[in-house]
Design a protein around this nucleic acid. Structure first.
Length: 319
DNA sequence: AACATTTGCAACCGCACTCGG
DNA sequence: CCCGAGTGCGGTTGCAAATGT
């Protein structure tokens, strides 16, 4: 398939390869003045010897004013690893959680750095699980092979994850149809707003009024839980890098429940074992499960984690 | 210093999807 | 329902810079 008639290869006289500063300036000036509108017709209007697709890509990945460039922070590293474990190579979805980063940049960063880092630590960058032999032993470790109950447990996790993801997709679609305050071309921005990342748009309550979608930023939620748990265990210290050391030995995915102020219970979904985060100080790695918390009755995600009381349970015992 | 190899990243390619006529 | 235009997205490529021999 494909639309080869719209590809740069089919157009005669179009320039390819790296963009010059003069070309950048032309594109930037045109978009700032007129907006991009139709990318196909833009090059001619802007006086560029490029195809529309190339212009769009250049704008999207380089010239947009709201792009952050430079080194990735530790938190961004963790976010990418965790989301990659949950979402796979869905770079646009991952980038929606990384304000001002482009999917191309995140993708490149994964392939050039993070993937290798995971491999060095003995984790499969695809599955995010320790590399195992056909007998189920982790390479170079003394871990026991997976028992029947372990496999069953993993199957339950995976089932719950798939349910949660399906619901998340469904809810996203419903919300998009119901509110559609954004251009369809800017799903990233929409996601950022829903997740409260984009300060430029103000609180979601202001944006949506009474109809605000309930959506939980799973990363923030999980960090909150880890913070809370770790603070109790480590005398209130909450340095992010110390999580790994604390949790590496005996960490088990907690069961999370969320209850509202009026006492209604949320359904809870988990994904285990997903993100591997590296403790730069101690060279250890930890496994962090994801929790996607949905309203028991309407399936909506929690929007503001701070509004809800989170109960941590481990082995069915509230801590 | 010269050459080979590796790395990082911008840009390209082509498939899939949405939407309007 | 079909088709074509336009766009989104993920995989891949190509090249300059960095590093190794």
């Amino acid at each position: 398939m494909g639309k080869s008639t719209h590809d740069c290869v089919a157009s005669s006289g179009v320039k390819k390869g790296p963009w010059t500063p003069a070309e950048d300036q032309k594109l930037l000036a045109f978009v700032q003045k007129h907006g991009h509108g139709n990318w196909q017709s833009l090059p001619q209007k802007a006086g560029l010897q490029r195809c529309g697709k190339s212009c769009r890509l250049r704008w999207r990945n380089y010239l947009r004013p709201d792009i952050k460039r430079g080194n990735f922070s530790l938190l961004e590293d963790q976010t990418i690893i965790q989301l990659h474990a949950l979402l796979g190579n869905r770079w646009s979805a991952i980038t929606a959680h990384l304000p001002k980063r482009t999917d191309n940049e995140v993708k490149n960063y994964w392939h050039s750095r993070l993937k290798k880092r995971l491999a060095l630590k003995g984790y499969d960058p695809v599955t995010h699980k320790p590399k195992t032999t056909i007998f189920g032993f982790a390479n170079g470790s003394t871990d026991e092979p997976k028992t029947g109950s372990n496999l069953n447990h993993i199957a339950q996790w995976e089932s719950a994850r798939l349910q949660a993801e399906a619901r998340f997709v469904r809810d996203s679609e419903l919300h998009k149809q119901a509110y559609h305050p954004y251009n369809n071309n800017d799903i990233s921005a929409a996601s950022s707003i829903l997740l409260g990342h984009n300060k430029d748009f103000g609180p979601t309550d202001q944006l949506f009024g009474q109809n605000a979608p309930q959506c939980l930023d799973i990363l923030r939620a999980w960090e909150s839980i880890l913070m809370s748990n770790h603070s109790k265990a480590a005398g209130g210290q909450d340095h992010v890098n110390s999580f790994g050391n604390h949790l590496a030995g005996d960490f088990e995915p907690p069961i999370i429940s969320a209850i509202s102020s009026n006492g209604s219970l949320m359904d809870c979904f988990f994904h285990e074992p997903v993100g591997q985060c590296f403790d730069e100080n101690y060279g250890t790695s930890i496994t962090e499960p994801f929790a996607t918390v949905h309203h028991k009755n309407n399936g909506a995600c929690l929007e503001d984690f701070g509004l809800w009381e989170i109960i941590m349970q481990r082995e069915k015992k509230i801590v």
